[in-house]
Amino acid sequence: MTQSSAFVDFRDVALAYEGHADFAVEDISLSIRAGEFVAIVGPSGCGKSTFMKLATGLKPPTKGTVTVAGNRVTGPLKIVGMAFQAPTLLPWRTTLDNVLLPLEIVEPYRATFKRDRAQFADRARALLKTVGLDGYEDKLPYQLSGGMQQRASICRALVHQPQMLLLDEPFGALDAFTREELWCILRDLWAARRFTVILVTHDLREAVFLADTVYVMSRRPGRILARREIELPRPRDLEVTYSDAFSHIVHDLRERIGAIRREPADA
């Protein structure tokens, strides 16, 4: 993989949080192509969320460099959409207004927000429709179920058409059926728009079903232990999760994480 084709590039990145001597993550080197769907899996507390903060520029690396779209990351990026395990919708805003929030902040939409509000609202409504939330635009978050809130949160992450979507265990708090439903919604959104995705998760089936490439991280200090390309043909149907090839990949990844967990903890 050549340097120029990489959309996101981590070079020997390490991060220590303020007041901590040891690194939360270290020796992270990886390249992500534009439009690639990457999943990062690992045991809990392995620095997956730290990785996200580095990729968005919310935290500057202590060592090494992070490059996104050819520019070295020094502050929060504006070409990124984020969604977290908690939907983090603003409870006083309706679904529609929550989804519109990024357009009130990110240029160039910000400048014309007041003038083009109707047009932006149409765009947001269309997006909400693709995730099955039409009819819920004027509801407040507490009137939505957890899965609906998470769908709205993903719409919010995508409304400003970011080049990269960062998902931090977005389906972790949902029941199994809702989760699989949202996998398919995310799969379709990605297939239609082809943004770059970094999905942090501890659900191996989720990672294998959705991603092109899965990275396995070690326990603290988090390192990339393994990289595995998922060669299951696309488009992938939920049926694929019951196939032998799928189970085989999941097993293989499970083994590697099992190996990490068996190592004695050093603290």
Binding site: T88, E104, V106, R156, H160
Partner: peptide
């Protein structure tokens, strides 16, 4: 997390105060 959502969009401090801090 609420602050991170806005910060990752490149929001200014005043944005965070007006859109999230004060309403909340």
């Amino acid at each position: 997390e609420l602050e991170d959502v806005l910060r990752s969009l490149g929001a200014r401090k005043s944005d965070i105060l007006l859109k999230v801090g004060l309403p909340r």
